[in-house]
Amino acid sequence: MKPSAFDYVRPSSVDEAIAHLEQFGDRAKVIAGGQTLMATLNMRLSAPELLVDIGRIPGLSGIEVRGSLVSIGALTTHREIERSALLARHVPLLTQAAPHIAHAAIRNSGTIGGSIAFADPAAEWPACCLALDAVIVIRGAGGERRVPARNYFHNLYETDLSATEIITAIECPITPPARRSVFLELARRQGDYAIVGLALLARIDADKLHEVALAFVGAGPTPMLATTAMTALEGRTPDAETLHAAREALTRDLDPGPDLYTSAATKRHLAGVLLGRAIAQLMSGGDQTHGTA
């Protein structure tokens, strides 16, 4: 199928883009890498009057360290993140997660800002941002605001971002060397949206887990921060008893819906399996490898 007709503008600044959005409201759509939007346009699931292409606005792309943060421009592609030496050193979770995103050609075009704006709970970056306690930098007519990822995802495809705002950057705290990370997911085929996935960070001190952060992919209407399980693990040695408690806690933390091939109960089961595997991998060295379950 071909998209319905729409008008197209390619603003050269964020302010210009926002002016278009202010004028058209929800009759406009922002396109960046377009890797999700284009498919929905082609299927006529979305039929905007105006497409606002922010893809060439200067200053929205690139990865840089700012003090204790790494700032990732919204237009930075999955591929640039995957290949960034800076991120591999400072936020290795993102390096670990990137290869799970779709396929090479899509990683070349798709952007982190687009992923966060669309907020698919089955996508990798939203869960990573939760686990990392990242901040979403948003610009609107009223200026810039910084929204912690943990306040950003409201419901299925509903976020703190309004129809007249644009994400300009994602700010991730630098992960200290002592804090390890693991990203795992279970996808039927390489590059598919995962049935379930998780992002885990923790510091290990004398076999005990500290500063545990655990976020799940595909386990609810939004990416899900598993706060109860995090508490169950915090400050403990991940022995069988602790792991059992953490898995039990997931029943409160997660709210998966069924997909075509997998029931909610199976997703819960798989989330528990992944948790065990992630912790085992974390204890044995974690971020040395790109995790596959």
Binding site: L186, R188, I195, Y261, T262, S263, T266, H269, L270
Partner: peptide, 12 residues
């Protein structure tokens, strides 16, 4: 599918 195999195994 994973679902059917897990069901056969009695895990879900």
């Amino acid at each position: 599918t994973p679902e059917r195999i897990l069901a056969a195994l009695g895990r879900v």
